[in-house]
Design a protein around this nucleic acid. Sequence first.
DNA 1: CTTGTGACCCTAA
DNA 2: ATTAGGGCCACAA
Length: 120
Amino acid sequence: MTWTWPWVARGLPADRHTGHVLPTPFAERVLDLVAAIPPGQVLTYGDVAERLGTRAPRAVGSTLARFGAGVPWWRVVRAGGELPAGHEREAAGLLVAEGVRLLPGAGGLRVDLVAHRWPG
DNA sequence: CTTGTGACCCTAA
DNA sequence: ATTAGGGCCACAA
């Protein structure tokens, strides 16, 4: 695994006895996959869910909201290429720095999925 | 373009 | 066991 839990990175124990929340098996699979997305490429929440063999894109979003701090969460976007809700600005900056082309849209910028969707 | 609706499936309480 | 709700999605209208 290339990612680390935020509280582990800060030297905090990742143990149930401490009261810290541990990622579920599902969450671990989400994080492993997201950590493997190369710079400059993206997946949608639905893509992640599909590659994990589930149809739970919302659960993917929830997982990244909770445990995504240690993985490139900005490389996971909505089905239409819209940036992750609540983090549009930060995601836009990080993506542009990786060379991702953003297209203008009414509700903000969209990732050019045709150009940057990760084939895997 | 916008809103509303219904289904989905996983998590936490 | 049950419930409520989510960084979603597809499909109306």
